[in-house]
Design a protein around this nucleic acid. Sequence first.
DNA 1: GTTAGCACTCGCATAAGAAGAGTGCTAATA
DNA 2: TATTAGCACTCTTCTTATGCGAGTGCTAAC
Lengths: 344, 344
Amino acid sequence: MLTNRQLQILQVIVDDFVMSAQPVGSRQIAKKEGITFSAATIRNEMADLEELGFLEKTHTSSGRVPSEQGYRFYVDHLLKPQVISGNDVNQIHSLFEKQMFEAEKVIRESANILSELTTYTTILLGPDVKKHRVKKVQIVPLTEQTAVAIIVTDNGHVENRVLPLPSGFSPSEIEKMVNILNDRLVGVPLHDFQMKLETEALSILKQHVNAAESIIQSLVSISANQSEGNVYYGGKSNMLNQPEFHDLNKVRMLMDLIDKKSQVHTLFNQQQSGIQIRIGSENNHLAMENCSVITASFLLDEEQQGAIAIIGPTRMDYKRVVTLLEVMRNGLSQAFMKGTNDKL
Amino acid sequence: MLTNRQLQILQVIVDDFVMSAQPVGSRQIAKKEGITFSAATIRNEMADLEELGFLEKTHTSSGRVPSEQGYRFYVDHLLKPQVISGNDVNQIHSLFEKQMFEAEKVIRESANILSELTTYTTILLGPDVKKHRVKKVQIVPLTEQTAVAIIVTDNGHVENRVLPLPSGFSPSEIEKMVNILNDRLVGVPLHDFQMKLETEALSILKQHVNAAESIIQSLVSISANQSEGNVYYGGKSNMLNQPEFHDLNKVRMLMDLIDKKSQVHTLFNQQQSGIQIRIGSENNHLAMENCSVITASFLLDEEQQGAIAIIGPTRMDYKRVVTLLEVMRNGLSQAFMKGTNDKL
DNA sequence: GTTAGCACTCGCATAAGAAGAGTGCTAATA
DNA sequence: TATTAGCACTCTTCTTATGCGAGTGCTAAC
């Protein structure tokens, strides 16, 4: 168990290092407000904290730097929510005051605001389209050979795709087909769409419509397709500002990582709700060795949630980010729950 | 007017520097195949070329480096289309062999392939949605208070937006409204949509439907909205590989520039068709001081064109990029023209 | 238990020297 | 006259040396 003095020193070191990115020395700590003991005492305590694994040295005679374990302890026990300047809170709130009917816009804006306020990179995961239910299926003919298939979901999301028409496929057949599809498939969640399509609709379609298979295939591909679309970024190049990213190789790895939407999902820990912090190697990714990720999930409606991730160096301003994230998370949850089903 | 020998030397210097990123010395040139004169002669010629503005030195006793004017002369007079390895051409062609019905996918893939083959960053400008014509307008009610408005264009592009319904707006009124809209607006290009909506449809709508204005507003905002959506990127982080981008500040400026879709349009010179090369300061942009941009436009249908831009350092492998771009441009033009109006 | 004092370590910045690449000029050569 | 060999000179880069300063760890005194 750490003594109060040790806690105090650890706190000062983390706070100072987060701001300055420089190892913190004993004299520097002694000068801090609230510190009543001398540099020599601090040196002793620091030696103990290092032995316990909370601090590290960059070289024999440098000041101390928090270790991963140090950050972990800090966020678990020393993190007191910061009082955020009214300006920043206002900036977030102003986002929700505008009456916005499109979730996508709100989310995109949120990512931008967060990255601006934190100076880190933000990734926002929108609602999982697969959970939306089919509201309406439409097929709009374009030419003799092609048409657009459109699936509207109950949240107002629209998926679409151009598909080839079998030759000689008539408008009346399209109409028949659309009617059957709407009869059978309205209300089905998208992740069951393919299955229901093949079990319930296919046989009936075959009875009434010629050459329906190719169109069915296209419909399936729509519903299979959109898992990747709901990722939004803010401040991608912000990380270039951080001194720890002077190594271009690391930057490249990171950029490649966050650009791959499939990889992005591994950053989130959707199971748990609330705010979560993963520090350095806890991310289980080489490119994230010196990064921390703070994630927060927010409710979109009864069954769905979105998620925010903020990616910065392990030397991240945790208290500021956590507080901002809390504000944003509440705002988003409220905004979406208020108008449940009015919005995407 | 430059002598043959000077031309030959300039060519060798550009080719060599493009590969090595190192200033080229006289001895190095003398060793090259096809060079029959001595290093001393080359030194004399280089001094002349420098005086003429085609070469530069990084310091008094370094080898020579092409100046912007040198690159300009090179691309204008010395650029002979390179024979590209069959593999690379195949990779491009294989893209068009797959039957793809969605322009967006083709374009996205093109950007990726180009950035891979060139190792530079690719930006692809898709068709200008504003020129598409309305094929069908639909309004799908979601709840009592909201609905999705959908505009399908003749190329299969779908724009959509959630809109609030005036209270007490009935399904039959929606139907009436949709019918009127389709009667009046089918065939109208999107950039005229707002105007036509207000001149032709509004008055009739007012006669038949109550409180149509708010819906009209939402429709207008759909058609006003999508100018930004048609930009695709490939290999964004490729530039981090170039030695000239060791300066993080430059990288940041560049990334910020190409991420802003509004700025991207200034990179293109849509007026002229064919392949264009802008070198360094010719781009009129501080962040692009050491970059060259090669753009090519391709035909999408009778009236529209898309554009490709490849962004790399001024020390770019012009001949390879130009050749690849030519292949890609032809492929794209062919792919789209073949199926004119079958595709987005 | 706390603190002052001091020797010691290490990183960093600056300087100095050596090596190497390349130039420009001069004088010799074809 | 055009070309080339030779050589002194310049400038970068790499290495090594040196001094400075920040910070530690230990000891002894308070």
